[in-house]
Computed example of a mutant assay.
Amino acid sequence: MQFGMRKPSIKKSISARTKGKAKRAVKKAVIPGYGKKGTGWIKDPKKAVYNKVYSKTTFSFWDLFK
């Protein structure tokens, strides 16, 4: 588990804003339960716990400017 600041990646950031955004929009239109709050706990509880802890123990480089 990581603590502190996440290492920024320009490549991943651009990918999430372009290709990733389009893929999520298509999935949301096709799959009825996709992107709904709380479905991660049902689908994969172990990963949901990990993600919850990870998001609380780390912060982004861009959070420093907020």
Rank of each mutant, 00 (worst) to 15 (best):
M1P: 14
M1K: 15
M1S: 12
Q2N: 11
Q2V: 10
Q2K: 15
Q2D: 11
F3K: 11
G4N: 08
G4T: 13
M5C: 12
M5K: 04
M5F: 10
R6P: 07
R6K: 13
K7E: 15
K7S: 14
P8H: 07
S9K: 04
S9W: 05
S9A: 02
I10N: 07
K11T: 11
K11Y: 10
K11D: 10
K12F: 09
K12C: 06
K12I: 05
I14M: 01
I14R: 00
I14Y: 00
S15Y: 08
S15Q: 07
A16N: 02
A16C: 04
R17K: 14
R17H: 10
T18Q: 01
K19R: 05
K19I: 01
K19G: 00
K19C: 01
K21N: 00
A22K: 08
A22R: 10
K23I: 01
K23R: 13
R24C: 05
R24P: 00
R24Y: 08
A25V: 08
A25E: 04
V26N: 03
V26F: 01
K27W: 08
K28Q: 15
K28A: 11
K28F: 10
K28G: 04
A29P: 01
A29F: 11
A29V: 09
V30G: 02
V30Y: 07
V30K: 14
V30C: 02
I31F: 07
I31E: 05
P32W: 15
P32V: 15
G33W: 13
G33Q: 10
G35N: 11
G35E: 05
G35W: 13
K36H: 13
K36L: 14
K37P: 06
G38H: 05
T39A: 08
T39I: 14
G40H: 03
G40V: 04
G40F: 03
W41E: 09
W41H: 07
W41N: 06
I42K: 06
K43I: 11
K43A: 09
D44I: 08
P45C: 02
P45V: 00
K46A: 02
K46G: 01
K46Q: 02
K46D: 03
K47F: 08
K47N: 04
K47W: 11
K47V: 03
A48E: 03
A48N: 02
A48K: 04
A48Y: 01
V49F: 09
V49R: 15
Y50A: 02
Y50T: 00
N51H: 13
N51E: 08
N51A: 13
N51C: 13
K52N: 13
K52A: 15
K52Y: 13
Y54D: 15
Y54T: 14
K56W: 11
K56L: 12
K56F: 12
T57A: 04
T57R: 04
T57V: 08
T57Y: 01
T57P: 02
T58G: 09
F59S: 07
F59P: 06
F59L: 05
F61E: 12
F61C: 11
F61Y: 15
W62D: 05
W62F: 11
D63C: 02
D63V: 03
L64C: 06
F65R: 08
F65C: 03
K66D: 03
K66C: 00
